[in-house]
Design a protein around this nucleic acid. Structure first.
Length: 563
RNA sequence: CUCCCGGUAGCUCAGCUGGAUAGAGCAUCUGCCUUCUAAGCAGAGGGUCGCAGGUUCGAAUCCUGCCCGGGAGGCCA
């Protein structure tokens, strides 16, 4: 519809001025007084042609062809062209929605194979609330991309090796000694969280006495390195323990995410890149003259592509950097032949983007395929107070704790209802409420109320035929038809979300729609003795219910029939 | 010092690819339940869109400078 209007306007404009190439818009006006559709084309053209916008608007309208479905077209305000639809067309979309038909509502013209990587937090500890935001966002975005007809692969990159994995192994090792009734002192850089003790308990059981030191061993090392020297000297393959706990912790993460309605198609282990020797191979694929040895290390000249400084690939101790793995990982993503590759990263990684882009270009790959979305931080507020969180002490609130506290639906909604580039202050008290203050309850309540109207029909044995009732929508009062305008705006909201990779407009829309419904519901009884009018109101309600259901599904939020 | 994000009502935020009178929710105040869920509804007050310039018929929106808050600038990941 929007496209048709756009094209008609464009044709008309070209008749008047063949060179006109300005970008004008066709929008749904906020105020329904301004028609069903509105365009600023005359204002844009007037600028180019230095003519009076209102006069130009009249010219454009008289040159318009093919808008059979318009009831009237007016010039208003500074020179807006407002289009009012014929009544039957006005009702055509809502009929489909009421029947639960959302096909083609959002359709990518050229469906793509898309790789969506998100969260990918280190398996050295549990998922915390910050990751939760990415998780909610990524999974909902995946739903949206799929609705548009794309094939989406959701992936989690597991950093299951390197120094941090070994440090985790050591942290668990030390706690195991504690479980074995030794006095221990945890070095500063070890992981200190409570979950380490759980891992230690499991590891102790699993290894049946292995990795428990003898009584006469000295256990009072102060630094990580001293500890590493000790365990490497004592055990043939200390990484066996590290790998075991990394695996345990990854499983924990997987569990937390699944509970949170986040399911991946693929868990990609960093270690697999090493097993296939892909680090070395991808480095060789970088442009030869952009890799050089200096100060004992191997460097990549990312400054050639605008990065602030060159980056190390292989350290002087011959250990590849995280960046080197990441080059191999991205090379692998490209090799898997996706049309689009989306990374969702925490905003703290923004400085990392130029070097990754640089490496992709140096590999001779199309950097435009890769899109990185950044998500800002999450802070928590409870009883008016900020909940303190700090990286150093490991005092992050775990996602699972938040979910236990406020529920999955609330948590997902409030993560999604804020645009990603905005830091999010999560109000725990608000998210816990079970009244209208809590938007997710408010939306779900609207849905449940409509379901209960349907039940009431059955209970009272009232004959209701949806298809027939949908032909009676014109009986609605003018104020009630305004809701239909809002309903008709659903595709534009989805389109906006899709185009901009955002979900918050959908959240706001659903709340808005619910609000309009609650007013409608409260104004007077939906079910009444005035059969035809009653049918029309029920049909409208059902359309709203279906949209709420459709929207909440995309957001990954439950949609109860009864509350 | 450089880069990124934010600054809109008392609070939390939409609006930002230039358009019509700057919008919601919360909080505050006033009303509404014998009848489909009051887990709700109706109404009222509340604004220097951080500041200063600029571009334009038109700026919260675009450009420049500055101020404030948060984040990033490892041979950590």
């Amino acid at each position: 519809m929007k496209d048709e209007i756009f094209n008609s306007l464009q044709k008309a404009s070209l008749k008047i001025s063949p060179e006109f190439a300005g970008s004008f818009q066709v929008t749904k006006p906020q105020d329904s007084q301004h028609g069903d559709w509105s365009s600023n084309i005359a204002l844009i053209m007037a600028k180019e042609m230095k003519k009076n916008p209102r006069e130009l608007a009249v010219e454009i309208i008289s040159a318009l062809e093919g808008l059979d479905y318009s009831e009237k077209i007016e010039v208003a305000g500074a020179g807006f062209i407002n289009i009012y639809l014929k009544e039957d067309l006005f009702f055509s979309q809502i009929r489909n929605y009421a029947l639960g038909d959302f096909k083609g509502l959002l359709q990518e013209k050229e469906p793509k194979k898309i790789l969506l990587e998100y969260v990918s937090s280190n398996p050295t500890g549990p998922i915390h609330v910050g990751h939760g935001r990415s998780a909610a966002f990524g999974s909902a975005l995946a739903n949206l991309l799929k609705v548009a007809g794309n094939k989406v692969t959701q992936e989690y990159y597991v950093n299951d090796r390197g120094l941090q994995a070994k440090t985790l192994g050591l942290s668990v090792f030390i706690r195991m000694q504690e479980l074995d009734n030794k006095k221990i002192v945890l070095p500063e850089d070890c992981y200190a969280g409570e979950y380490i003790k759980d891992l230690a308990t499991k590891a102790k059981k699993h290894f049946k006495g292995k990795y428990l030191v003898k009584k006469d061993d000295n256990l009072f090392f102060e630094t990580l390195n001293e500890w590493f020297e000790y365990v490497d000297a004592t055990y043939e393959n200390f990484l066996e323990l590290a790998n075991y706990v990394i695996e345990l912790q990854t499983e924990e993460i997987k569990k937390d995410l699944e509970v949170f309605q986040v399911k991946y198609d693929n868990w990609f282990n960093e270690s697999s890149l090493y097993e296939k020797d892909l680090i070395q191979k991808s480095i060789k694929n970088l442009k030869n003259n952009e890799v050089e040895k200096k100060d004992g290390a191997l460097w990549f000249k990312s400054t050639n592509y605008g990065d602030e400084k060159d980056r190390v690939l292989i350290r002087d101790n011959e250990e590849p950097t995280y960046f080197a793995s990441d080059i191999a990982y991205h090379k692998d993503k490209y090799d898997r032949d996706f049309d689009e590759i989306i990374n969702i990263w925490g905003a703290d990684h923004h400085g990392y983007i130029p070097r990754v882009k640089a490496s992709i270009e140096s590999l001779g790959l199309d950097a435009k395929k890769l899109k990185t979305l950044l998500i800002q931080f999450v802070s928590l507020k409870e009883k008016g107070q900020k909940v303190q969180m700090s990286t150093r002490s490991g005092e992050f609130v775990e996602l699972s704790d938040l979910v236990d506290e406020v529920g999955i639906d609330s948590a997902r909604y409030y993560f999604l209802a804020r645009k990603p580039e905005q830091a999010l202050e999560f109000d725990i008290d608000l998210a816990k409420k079970t009244n209208k203050d809590n938007h997710v309850y408010y939306i779900q309540y609207a849905h449940a109320r409509i379901c209960s109207i349907k039940k009431e029909l059955k209970k009272r044995k009232i004959d209701f035929n949806l298809k027939e009732s949908l032909e009676k929508l014109s009986l609605l009062k003018e104020t009630e038809k305004e809701i239909i305008s809002l309903v008709n705006g659903y595709p534009e909201i989805l389109e906006q979300c899709y185009k901009n990779n955002e979900l918050h407009p959908l959240c706001f829309y659903l709340r808005d729609l619910s609000s309009k419904f609650h007013s409608f519901y409260n104004a007077e009884k939906i079910i009444s003795d005035n059969k035809d009018y009653s049918d029309a109101k029920i049909a409208l309600s059902i359309a709203i219910k279906e949209i709420i259901n459709n929207g909440l599904n995309i957001l990954g939020i439950g949609c109860p029939e009864k509350m």
